[in-house]
Simulated assay, not measured.
Amino acid sequence: MVLFSAFLSLVSLLSLATAYGTLSDETLKNFPSPGDEFNIKTGAILAPILRTRVSGTPGSTAVLQHFLDFFKNQLPEWNVELHNSSAITPVSNGEKIPFVNLIATRDPPTSRVGDVGRLALVAHYDSKFTPEGFIGAIDSAAPCAMILHAARSIDAALTKKWKEMVADGTDELEEAKGVQILLLDGEEAFKSWTATDSLYGSRALAEDWEFSYHPAASTYRTPLDSIDLFLLLDLLGSSGPTIPSYFKTTHWAYKSMAAIEHRLRELGLFKSSPNHPTKMAKRKNKKKRAEPRFLTEADKGDKAFLGGYVEDDHVPFMARGVEILHIIPTPFPHVWHDITDDGEHLDLDTVEDWTRLVTAFAAEWMELEGFFDFRQQRRAEFTEKSEFEIP
């Protein structure tokens, strides 16, 4: 029985690895930039997240409302749910603190509950209890903003693809893939990191989903089973990150993202690159410099996986068999858990590069090449931005 289960898992991973559509250079060049929406003071997406947002406080509620407004106003086709839990923390004097996870899902329009496998884009939105006034820009306001922008960037293409599938009479159950966004609460420890003082929201959600069964005839037994890949972003937004490949079973996905990064750099689309056209133009010596990499272990061999990983929101899901691609730097950025982890210390070129990379990865995962209408999308985004300005 164990061998048979392992065989099924291998078949599932192989099918995922083959159901992955490469984007053209033209598509990569035309993905929209976050631009002013990532301005740290007035940006409609990022600025509202750059505040203290400790779980259970008014700041947390305000940021959650910002997320809800974003989906309501800009991504109305997404199904948005809130997952509530509560727990006593080491600093709450015996009182229960509320934790609220946001779950936003976009599935094919005629799919049945339990028959869709999903790419989950995940970040935590709470900020650390100490030091007082801690913002947590890399940890993880910027990753949340990246995910929101990526979702909007692929939304129209998803709609177009699924409309064409319905019009053509395609049996979408042959390729029932969706996207799910998890913005998780309570990742940070209130006092010191332990098994009980950390990951409050993710632990509660994974536990609930483990026993939330889909109808008996469904392809996937539970919402956990429906996650084909749990892509967790954390500590992103400082310059010069290096991201290891942590898990052998998802190294193929890491390599796919690394391949996109390489192509974006070769196309001159990575703003943080020393060889970006704007930086080359300012230099007297126009010779190309050594090109850095965010994802540094694409060539890692099987024997190099030693089993180590960074504890984060993926742990309760990984313990229940969910496949994880953890995008977190090692070593951590120097502002980690320091009061200087604020908007002013973000490297916005790096933030934009990560946003483009995550968008492209999601678009390739959903096989959206040929379904982007960038002219129409730009017109729609211009209208949406004018209606979603920060006063």
Rank of each mutant, 00 (worst) to 15 (best):
S92Y: 09
A120S: 13
F67K: 08
R152N: 08
G117T: 10
V116G: 08
E95G: 09
A137E: 01
F70I: 04
E81Q: 15
F70C: 05
S92R: 13
F71N: 05
W162I: 02
C144I: 01
W162G: 05
R152Q: 12
W78C: 09
K161V: 13
G133D: 02
Y125S: 00
H66I: 03
P131R: 00
S85D: 08
K72Q: 15
R106S: 12
L158F: 13
E132M: 02
H83L: 00
A123M: 01
F67D: 01
R112Q: 14
E77C: 02
A62C: 01
E77K: 09
H124Q: 05
D139A: 08
S153W: 05
R112D: 12
S140N: 14
N101G: 04
P108G: 06
H124G: 01
E95H: 15
Q65H: 13
Q74M: 14
F67A: 04
L75C: 15
R118S: 10
I154Y: 03
T110Q: 07
A141V: 03
T110Y: 05
L158K: 05
T159A: 13
S111Q: 07
K160C: 08
A150S: 14
A123W: 00
L119K: 08
N84C: 02
N73D: 12
T105H: 04
Q65A: 10
F70Q: 07
P131W: 01
A104S: 13
H83D: 14
L68H: 13
H124C: 02
N84E: 09
E81L: 12
L64Q: 13
T159V: 14
I88E: 09
S86P: 07
D155L: 03
L82K: 15
E81Y: 07
L75M: 13
L68V: 13
L121T: 08
S86T: 08
E95I: 04
P108Q: 04
D115K: 15
S127T: 10
M146N: 01
L102T: 06
K96E: 15
L64F: 03
T110H: 08
T61P: 01
N101W: 04
A145L: 00
E81N: 14
H66D: 00
F71M: 11
I154P: 05
K72W: 09
L148G: 06
F99D: 03
T130I: 01
G133C: 06
P76I: 04
A157H: 11
W162N: 11
V116T: 14
I154H: 01
F99T: 02
A62N: 08
I103A: 06
